[in-house]
Amino acid sequence: MTSCHIAEEHIQKVAIFGGTHGNELTGVFLVKHWLENGAEIQRTGLEVKPFITNPRAVKKCTRYIDCDLNRIFDLENLGKKMSEDLPYEVRRAQEINHLFGPKDSEDSYDIIFDLHNTTSNMGCTLILEDSRNNFLIQMFHYIKTSLAPLPCYVYLIEHPSLKYATTRSIAKYPVGIEVGPQPQGVLRADILDQMRKMIKHALDFIHHFNEGKEFPPCAIEVYKIIEKVDYPRDENGEIAAIIHPNLQDQDWKPLHPGDPMFLTLDGKTIPLGGDCTVYPVFVNEAAYYEKKEAFAKTTKLTLNAKSIRCCLH
């Protein structure tokens, strides 16, 4: 018999989150649709729960009410004593943790798909938090293969000092899905179709896995975050240069030392320094102006996964 890495157990509980950011409308629209008619997301033997994560922000069509829901799922915020004085999103995070967690427990949901849009030209993107997770690498390989020839990129946010504390991190297997470009507060049919297909293929993978299909060893190309880059700023902290036209919409493309990065209003080009080629992502993302992030630098690498098969009882 072929030796293989056996994944822990079959997958039982899956959640699909929309509206973690209330103005990213593809996930909101799909989740609302699936709450009314969820036939397309159901798979035999699998509990799939669509869920609106930040209903107040969705109602106002804004990213958040008090603070970013997708950055506060750490033990400090989840452990705060519940009171009306807490920011709305912290209270909501505790409610979500109660419903789908608790985080880092045996009772937490197996998989959470968190649906997002970006204003950046990132196409279909899967966000991975753990480079050693054979199950998710296999799932992402399946999704990428199923979507081809449509490109699907994998963004690895594993980093020693950049801690995200994402909404989906309460699950055993957290999956971020990011599709763009799409303006905030807008629905685009092409973007919706791409996100819908990503979810379909992900659920198909889980179904095949649960039925005992063995997935042979595989490898995927990923883009691992190195650092986030702020806009150049003046002495008052105001933005002093904008994304250069040569960099705009060039997510995932190589940016070499000396290539144009920013452009000042008086026409001066600010190039990339250093001696390493990087791959920019979230270029000129609207939501990241407040976070002082013009783009993120990534490096390209390959992740390998062992063969996996479900432990059938």
Rank of each mutant, 00 (worst) to 15 (best):
G19V: 03
E238T: 08
T167M: 13
T299M: 12
F205M: 03
Q250E: 10
L265C: 15
A57N: 05
Y288H: 13
H21A: 14
H244R: 01
L156E: 04
M122Y: 02
P50Y: 02
Q184V: 10
N284V: 03
A15T: 03
T299I: 14
G180P: 00
K172C: 05
F282P: 03
R168E: 08
K197L: 15
Q138V: 02
P245I: 03
R196F: 01
Y153S: 07
G123R: 06
G267Y: 07
L247Y: 03
L86F: 13
G19K: 00
L25Q: 08
H5F: 08
V48C: 09
H5G: 08
T166V: 09
P151V: 05
S146L: 13
E235D: 07
E106R: 14
R132K: 13
V48H: 02
L272V: 10
H98M: 14
E293V: 14
K13A: 04
V278L: 05
S105Y: 08
L203M: 12
A93L: 12
P50A: 14
H116Y: 08
R91Y: 12
N37P: 00
E24T: 02
F73Q: 12
E211K: 11
Q184M: 11
I308C: 06
P160K: 09
E95H: 08
A15L: 05
A57G: 11
Y64T: 07
D266Q: 07
I72P: 14
C152N: 00
W252C: 09
A39F: 11
C4M: 13
G180C: 03
K60I: 13
G176F: 08
T166D: 08
R43H: 05
F29A: 08
L35G: 14
V179D: 02
S307F: 05
I177M: 11
T302G: 03
P280K: 00
H21M: 07
V222I: 05
N304Q: 07
H201D: 02
Q94D: 11
D275G: 12
R196E: 02
D68R: 07
E106W: 12
S105D: 12
R233S: 13
D74C: 07
N284A: 13
L272C: 13
Y88Q: 07
N236P: 02
P87K: 12
I65N: 06
N121P: 03
Y153A: 15
F295P: 01
F51S: 03
H10S: 14
C311M: 09
K163F: 07
F135H: 01
T53V: 09
T299V: 15
F262A: 00
A7Q: 08
Y155H: 14
T299N: 11
L265G: 12
P280D: 01
K213Q: 13
L25N: 06
K200D: 09
Y64G: 06
V179F: 02
S105M: 12
E285M: 02
P87N: 09
P55A: 14
V278D: 02
P217Y: 04
V281H: 02
F262G: 00
Q138M: 00
H10K: 09
I96K: 06
L128S: 01
Y109Q: 04
H98P: 07
C311F: 08
C276W: 08
D234G: 12
A305Q: 00
L272S: 07
S105W: 12
I225V: 15
E47I: 11
C124L: 13
T167F: 10
K297N: 07
G19T: 02
H33K: 14
Y223S: 00
I199W: 00
G19C: 03
L99P: 06
I41V: 15
F100I: 14
D107I: 14
L147G: 01
A305G: 10
P160M: 06
V175C: 05
L115G: 01
L150A: 14
N70C: 06
A305M: 03
P50N: 01
Q182H: 03
E36Q: 10
Q194I: 11
A7W: 15
V186D: 00
Q184R: 12
Y223T: 01
Y88H: 12
K228S: 14
F282V: 02
R43P: 01
V281Q: 00
K80Q: 14
H208D: 11
N134V: 07
A286W: 09
Y289N: 13
G19A: 04
P183K: 02
G22Q: 09
G38K: 14
D110S: 05
I157V: 10
G180W: 00
T269L: 08
M261A: 14
N284E: 03
K300A: 05
A294N: 02
M139C: 04
M122Q: 03
H313E: 10
E36N: 15
I127S: 05
I206S: 04
L136C: 06
D130M: 00
P271K: 07
G22R: 12
T269I: 09
N37D: 13
A148G: 06
F135T: 03
G18Y: 03
P149L: 02
L126Y: 00
F17H: 05
T299L: 07
I52M: 10
Q94I: 12
L312I: 09
N304S: 14
L115T: 03
K59W: 07
K103A: 06
P216M: 05
N133F: 03
P232C: 03
T53I: 10
F205H: 00
T2D: 12
C310T: 06
P160F: 13
L150C: 09
C218R: 03
L147M: 13
K59F: 12
D275K: 13
T277N: 06
D110P: 05
H159L: 11
D74P: 15
C61T: 12
T119I: 03
K13I: 04
K253I: 09
L115V: 05
E47L: 09
